[in-house]
Design a protein around this nucleic acid. Structure first.
Lengths: 214, 214, 214, 214
DNA sequence: AATGAATGAGAGTTCATTCAT
DNA sequence: TATGAATGAACTCTCATTCAT
């Protein structure tokens, strides 16, 4: 949250903000509303209230609800782009360190709640936004996948990883984390039977077992 | 689907059906509408049209949209109950067969499109129905998880599986499949980079690697 | 209530009744529903349930909701017709007895709850049924008013009553009771500040004061 | 009515009004619709049309039909509060003047059609609004009743009025007027057998007869 | 005579969006 | 930039009424 929730109170006066700042506040609000109610059930009015302006105020910055949504995903998804591929380039590192670093990177990212929220939004609203997903995929996932896959191929060539079904389709290496996220969605506020930490450990172990040369 | 979609045509007259049958048709229609538009964006009118009756007709069988939704999940989720736990009880079987049978069972289930659709619905609408999810979890998942976990513990005791982080939290053994389902949701109509068959093979291999005694 | 409420229970089977009897039951139910919710807010379904048959069952006896309503008023209003005018014909009676008998007759009538309910219905739904009211008025009220007025004129001629504004417009002699009925409607379930008995006493006294020759 | 009915015509453009003014117009319209069709049969659409805006426009000012109704009664009933008790404080006045002034005040009030309409609405819709009635009663009727009763007690003490059943329950002194209002409701557009003027005379005479010391 | 299933016509309400200010 | 007022379109749900049995 860039600047804290800005819910409107009775006493608050009109605030005139430059569009860029206002948009940030609107998107902060939109992320919360969209991800907690879904696109269709979220309302411009609630987003506006949360952002501290009026319904009509939103339309000073966006032409439509849809445009808010698109800008939200666009913005939320872009920043992560900076991260270089996640597998450390094959130095002389030993497998356990490689795996640990790879897995930790993934899990650490989830500490920012925006990442989780965005990911969930992506899942639940995927049907709304095929092209958005495509763009996101082409710009974010595919390049990394290719880089990771290349790194994996090199590790395999080096004999640091053993060739296996997993090294052929390395994207599946994220599976335990993805499953945990899904479980979290399903369980809502209830207690998950597995903590993120526990999954992380199992995750590392699984990858080690699958990649360790014999 | 009893007899294909039953979209109403101009010429068609009223069809009087016993409530049980009509409900089946309504739920067939509802599954399609809910899972392709989401709960909020699905409309009673479209469900009705798809089921071949009028908007008001739905209300002769259900008190509200919500009730349709609940009955849908209830009905869609209940039948699978018959499946006994999925891990074959530990006879003298060898690990590869055990794993193959376990994995195949999971994947074969997905051939019925209702299962996929329901599962996706569950994910995207989880926020609507915490209690429903709870019920489903308590009746369907938890019992099986316990049975499977017990079977695993026995296998471990027998030395057929090796003790590992995965055998401690065996529910994670479904991860690759769950990830594929999520990918399928994200990719919508686009070509997935991985076929279900490919995932199935990786899946088996992963489990073998993780469970094979050394 | 002719035969007690006949609310439908789960176990009750279909009862085939001759139309006349069924109609009586329907009207019993209708009086309750119409007078407690008003014509517009009363529903055929509730009337039917109360009468112990199905919604469609009503239509075996009446062509429409309106027809039920009309028959209800028609029936509820007709029987009282038998009562001859309420003022005892001018025998040699003394005024206090005449007044007492006149007033008591009015108040005693109200013991049948149907009378109160009908009267209230008439008031609240008067706008629906100008002609019904007209008929009722022409058949019920006007004849009695004329008879009473004639009796009053005779009493005045006899010197038993003194001529006054009230003897000119004797229909106003019902005023305190009418006011009490209105108060009862307004107060609903709350405690009225005046009991029917108290009003009756005031009523008698008022008439005596107004009619007593000086 | 600020400026006559404001029915919307094809050519008329949107009129933007401050909420307070618009609400006044809405309530004007609502009074007409509610009192001529009853709460249940009145529709938001008709009220809106009569007020010169769209159905949804109503909801910019009121949350629900019920809220419109409540505000209507609230508003319609409050103003009269200003009227001090209706019986002139016991100066040395003679009874005929006291009675005349008291009665005239009551009848003059009815010249504003809003008063009649509101009163009728109160009667026909009393079942919808027990609390509203209560509030109205507590704020409007009860204080005046007490004040009037006190004044009456004083008059009786002075010997200006004679003690009687009526002075004990002085609220019944309104009875002839209430009865006339009820008759007016029943008779709808037909000719009443009694004019308001006639009732007023009878009314005065009745009170005089009942209160005149002997 | 009676009913369960079905429907057309509307009702109240919501909401994205526009307009005047 | 910002807003309160306004609206069209759509939605859920109700209800008197009809139909097939």
């Amino acid at each position: 949250m860039t600047s804290g929730t800005r819910q409107k109170t009775e006493t608050q006066r009109r605030r005139y903000l430059p569009s860029v700042e206002r948009k940030r506040e609107i998107l902060d609000a939109a992320l919360i509303e969209f991800s907690s109610h879904g696109y269709a059930a979220a309302t411009i009015e609630r987003i506006a209230a949360r952002a501290g302006l009026s319904k009509a105020g939103i339309y000073a910055h966006y032409k439509s609800k849809d445009e808010v949504f698109e800008d939200l995903l666009e913005t939320a998804l872009t920043p992560s782009l900076k991260d270089d591929g996640m597998l450390p380039a094959a130095a002389g590192a030993a497998l356990p360190e490689v795996v640990a670093s790879y897995v930790d990177q993934m899990y650490d990212r989830l500490d920012e709640p925006i990442v989780m929220a965005t990911f969930q939004l992506l899942i639940t609203e995927s049907r709304r936004t095929p092209e958005l997903i495509r763009r996101w995929y082409d710009r974010m996932l595919e390049p990394r996948r290719i880089r990771d896959q290349a790194a994996v191929d090199e590790y395999v060539g080096n004999g640091i990883m053993r060739h296996s079904a997993l090294t052929e389709h390395f994207m599946l290496s994220a599976a335990p984390l993805v499953m945990w996220i899904v479980m979290r969605m399903l369980y809502q506020d209830n207690d998950l039977p597995l903590s993120l930490e526990q999954v992380r450990e199992v995750h590392k172990q699984l990858l080690l077992d699958a990649l360790q040369p014999r």
